[in-house]
Design a protein around this nucleic acid. Structure first.
Lengths: 188, 188
DNA sequence: CTTGGCTATGCAACGAGTTGCATAGCAGGA
DNA sequence: TCCTGCTATGCAACTCGTTGCATAGCCAAG
């Protein structure tokens, strides 16, 4: 049910439509949760029918009408209650690691380009996060001092940055290993 | 469909029953994929009906019979084909980060014990992985030299170790931030 | 001797997440 | 002019993953 809570947090930070939420999930929320617009619309509808959210129809010119959702009392209470409940620490789900172990039963060198591609994606994400950090928290245009909400957003962003850096370092280790195996065992 | 491929890899490394696979997913496979026995039994049945696996019924004394699965030709081919297809880089799914940002709308200090608990879990996992590395790859009882399969298992394990270390470092950062906010803003 | 735990497999129901498709008006470029 | 792309919402069908429960024999501890 964490999507529900991620939506509550995002709407508390700023009310918005399903479409806007979907874009936030591609951007800032993206470094701790992902969701497609389908999922978001479905959950928004359910949360509204459960009384956690309020809707307001906004007609716009030169673009379709939208529904702006905002959190109401019971929604805020549901979030507060969840914060007090313990949750299970996450476990890994890493397809690429499955492939790497699977490469033992094929030619390991076929994975080199794939791993390089993943490295590029993580490197781009890192650059994007670092730019966001400079813009919002550590650069000259950032507010000083930061309030509690901004401090918490910043520490989550630092987590994303740390994650991307460690992933890149590991992928470099993987590439070195694959290249070493490729030269000593040229084709299975 | 990565569960299917994780099962193929594991059964290629060593044939086994659904029950044994479930335990492997709790242990060594656990640092790159998770699955419950329900999922595993269901997928094994499907894969067998698709001709990717062969079954052999084994009767045992003083414990229930089991079905030993092993990979056959088409299963190996399916894995090889998947290795050649590109996959999407993973995205984050981190409940705890949702909670941390949500704490801005409640009292941040309620999260301290929760974060400490997560830190303990990751610290235990790290110790477990490091012990496994020493036992299987870097200790005196480890085979030398390692073959390609072992090298690949080792680099995946190093990824698990790196991940746990970076997570612990980040959780320490989170704890420091929560404590700092707790003293300057004593209760919302 | 009863309770709990381990091996071993499985069903049923539910909830979470993905993919394909549909609608619809407006803006900008080839 | 047509095609692409953006805003904006949504249905239907599907797969993936979780939770609760059931069976069943053996073993060890209290």
């Amino acid at each position: 049910m964490a999507l529900e809570h991620a939506i509550l947090v995002s709407l508390l930070e700023k009310p918005g439509s399903g479409y806007e939420l979907a874009r936030r999930f591609e951007r800032s929320i993206g470094y701790f949760w992902t969701a497609t617009h389908q999922q978001i619309y479905r959950v928004l509808k359910r949360m509204e029918s459960e009384g956690l959210l309020a809707v307001r129809a906004l007609s716009q010119q030169s673009r379709p009408d939208k529904k702006e959702y905002s959190v109401v009392g019971p929604g805020r209470a549901a979030l507060a209650q969840w914060l007090h409940e313990p949750i299970e620490p996450e476990s890994m789900r890493h397809d690429l690691a499955v492939k790497i172990r699977g490469a033992a039963f094929d030619d390991p060198s076929v994975l080199i380009r794939e791993v390089e591609r993943h490295r590029q994606v993580h490197s781009d994400r890192l650059a994007h996060y670092v730019a966001g950090e400079l813009r919002d928290f550590t650069g000259p245009a950032a507010p000083t001092p930061l309030d509690a909400g901004q401090e918490l957003q910043h520490v989550v962003l630092r987590g994303g940055i740390t994650y991307e850096r460690m992933t890149i370092a590991w992928l470099d280790d993987v590439l070195a290993t694959l290249r070493r195996l490729g030269t000593s065992h040229p084709h299975a």
